[in-house]
Structures are given as structure tokens and as C-alpha cells.
């Protein structure tokens, strides 16, 4: 376990980068959505302003110490998981814990948030959390199949190795496993909590669900979590299917910075695809989203997975 200087720098920079990128992504998406709505929309920096305002509130209220803990857990989980995602081909910690570890790390934040919101004692929060978890179970099936297909295809569970294996022209997994990529993008929609799968926070149904009792810095923590989790999830897709944004040789600092920029642009692209789907769809009901995810995306993922398994057996 030896880290180069670059790695150490990356370990410290990654959370900051994710923080900035996440809020920037949200700001851009607000502008983007506003333009589709034929509005002017808030400035791109609005998200930073909002978070600062929330943290600047003189007073905030809490129902119990578990609510404080939940807000902490959400940020802990997202910071821990961003460290295991290669950024611009730089593996950060992804050789210390592979995709399976990451898949479970990703759960800390939502579960922590669920704890915090559950502790508020509001049934709207509880319904929101139960919906969030049910949604997770819905997309987990196709997404797990996608992960397994990618892992079997590259014969490694390490995300760093998967990124490294996609180096070079036209070597991206999206070309090798297009069906998996589609299924993953469909799962991404629910992971990001965008419509038609935003049941956990559905304002017109459960009054914004989990956030209903959160205000001030508690809401600020949740917003930081939300912003950073966008980077984590979109970045995970980029690493899995879009070669991790590696275009320049990454051995020089300049190349690494270039790669990080490409990675961020690709992640932003995935996020904007999700946002544009978000703007033109309504919201499914819970049972409908389960049926959706266990239908087409699962079928696509299963086809792709069986292709990988069969070709690994050497039949094709």
C-alpha cells in the first residue's frame, strides 16, 4: 500500500472537487431546466449561495440526536465513497476497495439520511424513506447485473483496473456492452432520484418526504450530500462505461488535470441527460417503478450479462 504524491494530493482534493462540481452541476441543471420551462432561472452559482445561506442560519431545530447523526452520516458516506471512485483515471483509493465495496459504501449515506429523517417522527419522512429504499431495491437488480457484466467482462472487480482496461481509442465499455450501458443509465435515473423516479421526495404526495423536518444547517448537510452524490453516481457511470474520461496520458500533472476536466464534462453530460429526462416526465407510483425496473432494464442487463458469461465460457 504505497501512495505516490499525486495520490495523496488527490485524496485531499477529491472531496473538495466533488463538493464544487456537485454544486456546479446542480446550478447548471437549474439553469438548464429553467430554459426548458421557458424561464430565466437562477444564476449558476445559486446552489453555493443556497448552501451558504442554510449554514448561515442562526438557528436550526432538531428532534433528537439521531437526526444530527443522520445528517453527519449522509456526508460521511458520500465523502467515503467519492474516495473510491477513480477521477480522470487517477485511481485514488479504488485499489483498496473494489466495486463490491463501493456498492456497499454507497449505501452508508442514504441509510444515514434515512436514520436522521426517521428520527424526526414525521410519517411523511418515514414514507419518503420507505419509498427511497424500495426504489433502491427496484434498480438494484438491473444495476447489479450491469456491475457483474462489467466485472466479468474485464475479469476484475477493481474499478481502477476497469478504467485502465478501457484506455485507448474506442475501447470504452459502452461500445463493448451497449445494452449494459443502457440499463445502467436507466438505473442511474433512479439513483440520482430524478423523475420519473423521484418518489422519495415527491412534494405533492408526501410534502418533500425526508426533508420535511430538516432546516438550517441540517438541510444544508443534506444538500451537500445530494450535490456530492450526483458526482459520485454520474462519475461511477463515467468510470464504468466511458473510460473514466481518460484521454490524455495521465503520467504528467497537466495530463491528469486534462483528464479530470474530461471526466467532469462526461459526468456533467450524464447528469444533464438525466435532468432532461426529468423535465419531460411525470412521476411513477412505487409499484410502477418496480415493474419498470424489473422489466426492460433487467432484461437488457440480463441479455448483456448472459452475453458476457457465454463469451467467457468460450462458446462465442
Amino acid at each position: 500500500m504505497t501512495f505516490s504524491t499525486t495520490s495523496w494530493v488527490m485524496i485531499f482534493l477529491t472531496p473538495i472537487l466533488a463538493f464544487i462540481l456537485g454544486h456546479l452541476f446542480l446550478g447548471i441543471s437549474r439553469k438548464f431546466t429553467a430554459r426548458i420551462h421557458r424561464r430565466v432561472g437562477p444564476p449558476v452559482m445559486q446552489q453555493f449561495i443556497d448552501v451558504m445561506k442554510l449554514f448561515g442560519k442562526r438557528e436550526s431545530t432538531t428532534h433528537s440526536w439521531v437526526q444530527d447523526m443522520g445528517a453527519l452520516f449522509a456526508v460521511i458516506g458520500v465523502i467515503a465513497s467519492i474516495l473510491f471512485i477513480p477521477i480522470g483515471g487517477e485511481a485514488v483509493l479504488s485499489f483498496q476497495g473494489d466495486l463490491i465495496v463501493l456498492a456497499y459504501l454507497l449505501v452508508i449515506a442514504p441509510l444515514g439520511m434515512a436514520l436522521g429523517t426517521g428520527a424526526t417522527g414525521n410519517p411523511n419522512s418515514a414514507i419518503g424513506v420507505s419509498r427511497g429504499l424500495m426504489l433502491m431495491m427496484a434498480y438494484e437488480l438491473p444495476f447489479a447485473m450491469v456491475l457483474v457484466a462489467v466485472m466479468l467482462y474485464y475479469d476484475t472487480a477493481s474499478l481502477g483496473d476497469i478504467v485502465a482496461a478501457q484506455k485507448g481509442a474506442f475501447n470504452w465499455a459502452i461500445l463493448a456492452l451497449p445494452l449494459s450501458a443502457i440499463a445502467a443509465d436507466l438505473s442511474l435515473q433512479a439513483m440520482l432520484g430524478e423523475k420519473p423516479f423521484d418518489q422519495p421526495v415527491a412534494p405533492s404526495e408526501i410534502a418533500s418526504g425526508p426533508m420535511v423536518e430538516f432546516g438550517g444547517k441540517y438541510l444544508g448537510m443534506l444538500m451537500v450530500w445530494h450535490a456530492m452524490s450526483i458526482v459520485v453516481e454520474a462519475g461511477l457511470f463515467v468510470d464504468l462505461f466511458l473510460g473514466g474520461g481518460v484521454i490524455f496520458p495521465g503520467d504528467s500533472v497537466l495530463g491528469l488535470i486534462g483528464n479530470i476536466i474530461v471526466w467532469a464534462i462526461l459526468a456533467l453530460m450524464m447528469w444533464l441527460i438525466s435532468v432532461s429526462i426529468n423535465t419531460v416526465f411525470g412521476r411513477f407510483k412505487m409499484g410502477q417503478s418496480l415493474k419498470f425496473y424489473w422489466g426492460v432494464p433487467t432484461l437488457l442487463a440480463l441479455l448483456s450479462l448472459s452475453y458476457v458469461v457465454i463469451s467467457n465460457l468460450g462458446v462465442i
Binding site: I36, H37, R38, R39, K195, P196, D198, A202, P203, S204, T279, V280, F281, G282, R283
Partner: peptide
Amino acid sequence: AIGLYTMPMW
């Protein structure tokens, strides 16, 4: 009500 906010805006 179904979360399609583009519709009310338009």
C-alpha cells in the same frame, strides 16, 4: 401533481 413541472410552466 405528477411532478411534470414543465407542463404548468408552459
